[in-house]
């Protein structure tokens, strides 16, 4: 019914949309959101693969991704707040001090 090709295509499309967002946005918050989309794309792939093989490992992996996403968001948003406090902007191009 749902072919693997379609599913793969969906997942990859979602992932590439995330990549596109990461490339195109300069706002740190939007970059984090893009990363969330990419994580979701991978999660879909895992769950789908698990159900193909009638195996619960895929969902366990999904659980792990969930944990990872939660941690990442917590730290990432902390950074966003800190950056906003320092530069009063979320433009990542202003964070090029490490270059000098």
């Amino acid at each position: 019914m749902i072919s693997a090709e379609q599913l793969l295509f969906f997942s990859l499309t979602l992932f590439v949309i995330g990549v596109f967002g990461l490339l195109v946005r300069r706002n740190l918050l939007f970059m984090l959101i893009s990363i969330e989309i990419m994580l979701n794309a991978v999660a879909v792939l895992f769950v789908a693969a698990g159900s193909y093989h009638h195996n619960s490992d895929g969902q366990i992996m999904y659980l792990l991704i969930l944990t990872l996403a939660a941690s990442e968001v917590a730290v990432g948003l902390g950074l966003v707040i800190q950056m906003y406090r320092r530069t009063l902007s979320l433009d990542v191009d202003q964070l090029s001090k490490m270059h000098e």
Partner: peptide, 10 residues
């Protein structure tokens, strides 16, 4: 190493 995050991601 220009310090531009978008360059790195690109």
């Amino acid at each position: 190493q220009n310090g531009q995050l978008r360059w790195y991601s690109a």
